[in-house]
């Protein structure tokens, strides 16, 4: 990697909107944005290759705030930790509350506090795996920052991406956030146990997800009752 590339990668800055750029720097802003996206993809490929080389199954879990990403991961790690060596990378703006919850189920955790950034990027993940002996793990889960928008800008280099939404967010949540559904392999509609009480039209959520991405696998779960967790793990190949 050249010094110039290295320098560009070293400061991955998400440029929120080209419209904000003054006319005299518009070209430069567009080129920088393209370079940042390209560099993220390059690093994500590097990360994925490292996982493959070490026979690690890897998952990026994205989803809305409070949709149940951590609760699902608690259930999954509790079931898997006796047979697999698990590393969970947790992304949050601040605190290590999620990592502490997951750690109780015998998985190693690393917290990334993104501060003011709204999603994890491949640079964060690359920084971690550079310092880890990946031979010590069989499965890596990356729990992204709770957000249905920003993670679509950055792939992380995992085998599969799961998107988690829940019945409490209403039946329009899928239709309103198409990009992440387009980029995900499995859609999880969690808190299925609350469906009747809330009157959420889950069939609409399922058909919206399929309409946006015909290849996506859709599953309903309840992290609270444990419903369909085994089926979800089957879909994930675990």
């Amino acid at each position: 990697m050249s010094d110039k590339e290295d320098k560009t990668i070293s400061r991955i800055k998400e440029i929120e909107s080209i419209n904000l750029a003054r006319d005299d720097i518009r070209d430069e802003v567009i080129e920088t944005k393209k370079a940042v996206e390209r560099d993220n993809d390059l690093l994500a490929n590097k990360v994925h290759q490292s996982f493959i080389d070490n026979n690690i199954k890897s998952f990026d879990i994205v989803g809305a705030i409070g949709s149940g990403k951590t609760a699902l991961l608690e259930k999954i790690t509790a079931k898997l930790s006796s047979q697999y060596r698990i590393l969970v990378i947790c992304g949050d703006i601040t605190t290590r509350l999620d990592a502490d919850r997951i750690e109780k189920h015998n998985a190693e955790t690393i917290q990334i506090n993104t501060g003011r950034e709204c999603a994890l990027n491949a640079y964060h993940i690359h920084k971690i795996i550079k310092n880890k002996d990946l031979k010590n793990y069989d499965v890596v889960f990356i729990e992204n920052v709770g957000n249905l928008i920003c993670p679509s800008d950055f792939i992380l280099g995992t085998d599969k991406r799961l998107i988690v939404v829940s019945t409490t967010e209403g039946e329009w949540v899928v239709e309103k956030h198409p990009m992440l559904f387009k980029m995900s392999d499995i859609a999880v509609i969690n808190k299925f146990d609350l469906k009747e009480r809330l009157g959420t039209d889950v069939d609409k959520m399922i058909s919206d997800a399929k309409k946006i991405n015909p290849k996506i696998e859709v599953i309903t779960t309840s992290a609270k009752t444990g419903e369909n967790i085994d089926k979800l793990m089957n879909l994930m190949g675990l």
Partner: peptide
């Protein structure tokens, strides 16, 4: 400071 990025 105001919430920098930390990787443990």
């Amino acid at each position: 400071g105001d919430y920098p990025t930390f990787i443990e």
